[in-house]
Design a protein around this nucleic acid. Structure first.
Lengths: 207, 207
DNA sequence: TAGATTGTTAATCGATTAACAATC
DNA sequence: TAGATTGTTAATCGATTAACAATC
């Protein structure tokens, strides 16, 4: 059995960017693109794009480039986004509401199947076609439905606690909107959405 | 005149993370920390933290570590977030509403001072204490108020167009919520908020 | 065919880490 | 003082780029 070649995480991180750019090209009516064209759009060298893709196979044709639809399909398969994922959302405040209502998740393959909150006045209300469930049911619902992805949209001080419960219930990937660093066991992945951190990174450069 | 030493962007990108972790430590009542403690929390080596900080000066004391409040202050100065920034928001749909209402921006030094939309039925309505302004006024308002930061929360197909206007009006940093890559002239910075891309990056790793 | 572009190798570049003298 | 931790140097590691044979 061949050892699974492990691909640098930084490469994996660029695949969704390629996916996004390819979708855009497809939307614009293109059928074929090249590493050069793609690189131009993304501000990435063509060599890097070819190198990145070469980790997974050969997807292009010399002299021609890449069939956009084919490459899209291959990338989706690699990232395992060739099927829909069920997602649990914790937190039904302003942010949770916005997330639940945002159509872009479903559009791109992530279906929010449950929303939890701990506030008695929110529990039972409807949000985007779902009933807001009590946080106490989190573990049961997630285990039963075998949900593997969670989104944390609770105030910072509850985020670690919520994370621990998600992990215990079997969640393997967490998208964290709270501005704190979460501690998770190995094998569980966390990504952070912190718009303010992005702004702070840019203000450094403003005269 | 010494040439301004230019610091790797990847280092700049970590400073907001340090800022966030230090704030958290301060909130928890700590006065002092070390590169080791900070690194543990963030999953970063202590050597890297010391190296990163060394680009900007000496902020610690051998044998003791870092005075949290002092380091916080220094980092804020370096990132230029030791004063409030005015921000313009374009797009008053669901996402724009959520952004406008989210308290975390102001809390951390970014004040949304104007919201624009092109839909006649939204223009004039109130949103978080502001009147929604017509997109046609974007250029004037931003130039006059010398706003340097913009947030783009419009559908993907309008995002580039809006960006061009923002840039023309003098905006130097753009936080883009639309899932497309934007083209901007040198000297203008863009950061992307694309939660789906983060999810796609994690699904790769799920058995 | 001639031109274009891939996939891949080797060279370069840059970032991270280990180690330690300095010193609080 | 003894222990701890900084700031920095040099070594290591890994990622990016340049270049080109293969080939459509």
């Amino acid at each position: 059995m061949a050892a699974p070649v492990d691909i640098p995480d930084i490469v994996i991180g660029r695949l969704p960017i390629y996916l996004r750019a390819l979708s855009q090209l497809a939307d614009e009516g293109h059928d074929i693109t090249s590493s050069h064209e793609l690189g131009q759009r993304l501000g990435i060298s063509s060599a890097q794009i070819r190198k990145d893709l070469s980790h997974f196979g050969e997807f292009g044709k010399q002299g021609t480039g890449y069939q956009i639809n084919h490459l899209l399909g291959q990338l989706k398969q690699i990232l395992q986004v060739d099927h829909e994922w069920a997602v649990a959302l914790v937190g039904a405040g302003d942010l949770g509401h916005a997330i639940a209502r945002y159509g872009g998740f479903l559009e791109r393959g992530f279906r929010i199947v449950a929303v939890f909150d701990s506030s008695p006045e929110k529990i039972g209300r409807e949000l985007n076609g779902m009933q807001i469930l009590p946080a106490d049911d989190l573990s049961t619902v997630i285990s039963e439905q075998q949900v593997k992805i969670g989104m944390v949209a609770v105030p910072a001080r509850y985020a670690q606690e919520v994370t621990d419960e998600l992990v215990k219930a079997g969640v393997r990937a967490i998208l964290n909107y709270a501005p704190i660093t979460l501690v998770v066991p190995k094998g569980v992945h966390v990504q952070y959405i912190d718009p303010v951190a992005h702004l702070q990174r840019m203000t450094y450069y403003i005269d």
